[in-house]
Design a protein around this nucleic acid. Structure first.
Length: 450
RNA sequence: GUGGCUAUGGUGUAACGGCAGCACAACAGGCUGUGGCCCUGUUAGAGAGGGUUCGAGUCCCUCUAGCCACCCCA
């Protein structure tokens, strides 16, 4: 990672003459540089391809939303809303937040744009930046990117299974063969309150044996006690009544059906009764995708690549019709980290085989025109028109690894010829200006055959 | 929000409290119209502020940022 410098200058202070004033990307954000882009393209291309294959349409929602969408959608008691949102008042005094996730925004768009009137279920996918005011660390940024899929208007367990299938196929298509899917059910509005009671009565009289955090959570969000990492809490949680045993008949059958369909699809999962997710909108199915140990990968703390679940009440909670739905999202930076750790290279971008070098003012003008002619004929050539010496241009051509360099100097410009240099053999041939495009085409075709 | 470690050119790094060096990269030249190898040169550096000291890159404090961990999550 590059290190940065920053000078603390007040606004009215004159800029120092010699030293550069350096700004840096704000904490927890980073630039995606040209060298990283192949990974991003690879992932976006893969997501687009699989979305198309499964019949999902792209949706983009704004990066900012009314804060209340997240308060009502994600849940006022969640960490995301309570302490991780970038929230500000706009000039009109409205409370706006940078989206910490995309599902609530999509639910809002679904209601607002009357997407209920499209053939249901509606299958959508997205990718884009999300923002959480979190302490940056491994795989964790304040601005990060997710792609995600949603199926709105389907209560069928098949949709749950399909979501897991899609997620798993994207990872496979990217070359990640080893990952674990954890799955659970968090029940629904009918059975969850009863389970909370059961849980509370279990913890009754044992509160002194909980960590401070859990004591508080007992009141705010008792389900979260189940995945506390503290050893003493863990012991209690292990013996706690399992959520899965308190599911109502409908939720129970739903989970059973999802699992059976996954079995049918030969998707390996582990039923994790203590899996609880941090967003309030989830009902019934919840799942997370964790990286498996890749070959030669160093031991390290693992972080979830993605997660999702069913959210049957979200659309209704935001003011729409009762619309059962299910979805998931994945962290793109985390997946790229996983690709790098697994030594998976993104496919290389299109190679350029031709370089156009020029020498002198007249030749430069002619070269600009020639470049256009090639481009219009579908041949991409590389250039370094800002350079003067032939030597330095050939150096650039060499570094780019082109097969041929076209040299257009004063002499050639006057004679209406082009010098074609084979970069491997060094053999040069003088070619008529009018024939150069077809000559290069011929050579490229020959090269592709090999 | 809490804790640990770290901070030297664009990158990677070195120097007992005593002249800030090396490598790579970039750019220019050697070859004024010909790349790779080689050689020469140029550009460019102590995160910010304060303190100790004759003297601080080096010791101390504060801030900032990075990395990591907790919490939580993608």
């Amino acid at each position: 990672m590059p290190r940065f410098k920053k000078q603390n200058l007040s606004e009215d202070e004159p800029l120092p003459l010699r030293r550069r004033v350096l700004f840096r990307a704000v904490k927890g954000t980073k630039d995606i540089l040209p060298d990283d882009q192949p990974y991003w393209d690879f992932m976006r291309d893969t997501v687009r391809k699989i979305a198309f294959e499964y019949g999902f349409s792209r949706i983009d929602t704004p990066i900012i939303e009314d804060t209340n969408i997240f308060v009502r959608g994600v849940g006022s008691g969640t960490d995301i809303v309570e302490k991780e949102m970038f929230t500000f008042k706009d000039k009109g005094g409205d409370s706006i937040s940078l989206r910490p996730e995309n599902t609530a925004g999509i639910a809002r768009a679904y209601i607002e744009n009357g997407l209920v009137n499209k053939p249901q279920p509606l299958k959508l996918y997205y990718f884009g930046p999300m923002f959480r005011y979190d302490q940056p660390q491994k795989g964790r940024f304040r601005e990060f990117h997710q792609f995600g899929f949603e199926i709105l208007g389907s209560a069928s367990p098949t949709s749950d299974a399909q979501m897991i299938l899609v997620a798993s196929n994207i990872l496979k298509a990217l070359g990640l063969s080893s990952f674990n899917i954890k799955i659970n059910s968090v029940g629904c509005v009918a059975c969850r309150p009863a389970y909370k009671e059961t849980l509370l009565s279990y913890y009754q009289g044992q509160t002194s044996r909980l960590c401070a955090h859990c004591k508080r959570r007992l009141k705010t969000n008792p389900l979260r006690l189940l995945d506390c990492k503290e050893e003493k809490c863990q012991r209690l949680a292990n013996n706690a009544p399992a959520l899965i045993d308190s599911l109502c008949e409908e939720c129970h059958d739903h989970l059973k059906e999802v699992l059976e369909q996954l079995d049918e699809l030969e998707i390996v999962y582990s039923l994790t009764s203590k899996l609880v997710r941090g967003l309030d909108y989830y009902t019934k199915t919840v799942f997370e995708i964790w990286p498996g140990k890749a070959e030669g990968q160093e031991e390290g703390k693992q972080i979830a690549l993605g997660g999702g679940g069913r959210y049957d009440n979200l659309v209704e909670d935001l003011g729409g019709e009762l619309t059962p739905a299910v979805g998931f999202s994945c962290g793109m930076e985390r997946i790229i980290m996983q690709l790098m750790e697994s030594k998976i290279e993104p496919p290389r971008s299109r190679k350029i085989y031709v370089f156009l070098a020029q020498l002198g003012e007249l030749a430069k003008r002619k070269a600009l025109v020639l470049f256009e002619e090639f481009r219009q004929n579908g041949i991409i050539v590389s250039e370094s028109f800002s350079r003067g010496s032939l030597k330095s241009q050939l150096k650039v051509a060499d570094r780019l690894g082109v097969k041929v360099t076209l040299i257009l100097g004063q002499k050639e410009a006057l004679e209406k010829t082009i010098l074609l240099r084979d970069m491997e053999t060094g053999v040069q041939e003088l070619i008529n200006r009018d024939k150069i495009v077809s000559e290069v085409k011929k050579r490229l075709a020959k090269m592709r055959k090999k």
